[in-house]
């Protein structure tokens, strides 16, 4: 979705913007002068048309609500090149992650795999079930047959504490 698309659909919401900037903590975002170093090095630019400098600009213009419900925020590969290269420390990566958190709070379109990972962590402590692996010769191995030590799930208090942490609004 391009900058023009988002802007033609809605009016800026300055209240959302203020709240969002407070969530980000730092005020560096407003120092962005659109040099586009983030976008020129962005891993997701070519394949998914992610343009981090546009996201930064849209936040500043007050289109936070539209961004939170847009698919584009889920196109970031989290390679951190934009954080590294931003001369103004406006760090589009952190802006995108905060937008994702906002999308979750608003129950917008969140890719299912993320939610699955969270419920798996709640259940077992780790993001995925312990898998059996198959070699190229079609032999199947697991931790035990590979003589790897058994792994221990977190103690019971973990589940309720993690749930409490997930309820924290930012």
């Amino acid at each position: 979705m391009s900058l023009i698309d988002l802007m033609s659909m809605a009016k800026p919401n300055l209240k959302s913007r203020e709240k969002f900037l407070a969530r980000l903590g730092g005020t560096e975002l407003v120092n962005c002068f659109q040099c586009m170093k983030c976008t020129s090095g962005c891993t997701s630019l070519k394949l998914l048309e992610l343009k981090p400098h546009e996201i930064t600009k849209l936040v500043r213009l007050g289109f936070v609500d539209e961004l939170a419900s847009s698919d584009i925020i889920w196109a970031c590969a989290t390679c951190l090149k934009c954080v590294q290269r931003c001369p103004q420390k406006a760090s589009p990566y952190h802006v995108i992650m905060a937008l994702r958190n906002l999308a979750v709070e608003r129950e917008a379109n969140v890719p299912e795999a993320y939610l699955k990972a969270v419920s798996q962590i709640l259940e077992t402590g780790v993001t995925a079930p312990v898998q059996k692996v198959t070699t190229k010769k079609m032999e199947v191995f697991d931790r035990e047959s590979l003589k790897l030590p058994k792994i221990n799930a977190p103690k019971e208090s973990f589940q309720s504490t993690f749930l409490k942490a997930l309820e924290e609004k930012q």
Binding site: W74, R100, V104, Y114, V126, T127, A153
Partner: peptide, 27 residues
């Protein structure tokens, strides 16, 4: 020396709730 428990560092949770991700990492 392995840790007592196998737990997530919080990586995918950063996209869901940054505070909860920080809790996992600190844990």
């Amino acid at each position: 020396a392995d840790l007592r428990e196998a737990v997530c560092c919080g990586d995918p949770v950063k996209s869901i709730n940054n505070f909860a991700a920080d809790y996992l990492a600190a844990r």
